[in-house]
Amino acid sequence: MTVAPSAELTILSVLPRLLDTNGDAANARVLAQRARWAGIAARVVDVHTTADLPDTVDLVVIGSGTDTDLDAARAALLPLADAFGSWLAGGVPTLAVGTGWELLSAGIDLPGGTRVDGLGLVAGHATLLAARATDDIAVDASDARLIGFENHARGYTGAAHPLGRVLAGTGNGTGDEGLVQGSFIGTHLHGPVLARNPQLADRMLSSACAARGLAQAASAHTVLVDGTAKAARNQVAVRLGLSSE
Rank of each mutant, 00 (worst) to 15 (best):
G100L: 11
H48I: 12
L242E: 14
V238E: 15
Y156Q: 10
S219V: 02
A89R: 11
T114I: 06
R212A: 03
V236L: 06
D109L: 13
G164Q: 12
S86T: 14
N22F: 14
A123H: 08
V238W: 15
L95Y: 05
V57G: 06
V45L: 12
A4P: 14
H221V: 07
E150K: 05
A211E: 08
S206F: 02
A217K: 12
L70N: 02
H48M: 15
V225P: 03
R36S: 03
R212I: 04
L88F: 05
G175K: 09
M1S: 10
A218F: 05
A83E: 01
G155V: 06
T66N: 10
L121Q: 02
A160C: 00
N27R: 14
G124A: 05
R233T: 03
L119G: 06
D176R: 08
H190V: 01
L224S: 13
T222N: 10
G169V: 03
G98Y: 00
D24Q: 13
G113D: 06
G98R: 03
A131R: 12
L121G: 09
A160D: 13
G112I: 09
G120M: 07
L103W: 01
Y156A: 04
R34E: 05
S142P: 09
T21P: 12
A201V: 00
L95N: 02
D20K: 07
G90A: 05
N197P: 12
E102K: 08
A210V: 11
A32Y: 11
R239N: 15
V60Q: 00
D69G: 00
Y156L: 11
D24Y: 13
A126Y: 03
A218N: 01
T134G: 00
L95I: 13
T49M: 10
R165I: 01
G171Y: 05
N27Y: 15
R196W: 12
A73R: 08
T127S: 14
H161V: 08
D67F: 05
R29A: 14
G107W: 03
A126E: 01
D226I: 06
L78S: 14
V193E: 11
R74Y: 08
T2N: 13
T228G: 04
Y156S: 03
A126V: 00
T134N: 06
A32F: 08
Q181Y: 03
D71H: 04
D117S: 10
Q33L: 15
V14K: 08
T50W: 09
A51I: 08
T56H: 15
L242V: 09
Q33G: 08
P5W: 01
L80K: 01
G182F: 02
E102F: 11
H190S: 02
A208D: 10
E150Q: 13
D55Q: 15
W37Y: 13
A195S: 12
G155I: 01
R29P: 00
